[in-house]
Amino acid sequence: MSHPHRTQNIAFFFLLLATLLIVVPVGLIVVIIVQKGLPAINGQFLLDIPRQGMRAGGIFPAIVGTVYLVTGAIIFALPIGLLAAIYLSEYSRENMLTRLIKLAIVNLAGVPSVVYGLFGLALFVVFFKFGASILSGSLTLGIMILPIIITASREALESVPSSFREVSLSLGASKWQTIRHIVLPNAIPGILTGTILGLGRAAGETAPILFTVAAFYLPRLPHSIFDQAMALPYHLYVISTQVPNVDEKTRYGTAFVLLALVLVMNIIAVVIRTKFRKKKKW
């Protein structure tokens, strides 16, 4: 009789092992980067331009470039993504068109990031003649994070109980008034979460900006949105593969800043989500 239970114990042991094989390395990665990267962080590293062919100085232009890119991406993607989510949650009916839109979103989310880079190069840099610029990069990143924003916003909108909509309509409000005054305000935490996750994704991606914006070595701040810019993830790539003899501390420091930026955004998103779930009144 003990046989099935022995099998179960062995099986559960392997399941646990599989889980640890994922979770432990994740912890190790974070620990290594924090341990080796944190000592590199100081005012000069964060606020100075890179010097001596990126072997010294700081990473300020890369930080600023990433902030510009991410801001641009969100300015482009949030309105479109939010309206698309409103369409899916409030207006669409179960038909072929809706099915097609959902399929398109899934595909947009699955397109390899380097293909977005190609697309941005062909459309924005070459066809629209924006050149390699913050504008081209932002638009490329914006399209890339569109599915994240649509999916998260749609979930948030759909989680608003339909009874609220009925009450609002029964009081003589129009459909748009109902969306604007009842549905949207109650979906904001979820939309915010999705937006921040999109921001984190845009901040960490390298491949889409390789040919649309990134400057290999540009030790100054960008002047306008038609200017090239450095960006944190690309900078990390450059100093860890393209430039010999970069101090290890600089590499880890850059990795730390990038990781911290992305993780802080994710943590904020998670905090908003959990807080909202607890506070939910219905």
Binding site: I22, I29, A203, L236
Partner: peptide, 24 residues
């Protein structure tokens, strides 16, 4: 906790993972 760990992994930029892969 485990789910948070998995989400954390999903959030790490690929260039950071590439860098860590290179050095370890």
């Amino acid at each position: 906790v485990l789910k948070a760990g998995i989400e954390l992994l999903a959030a790490i930029p690929s260039v950071v993972l590439g860098f860590i892969g290179m050095v370890t």
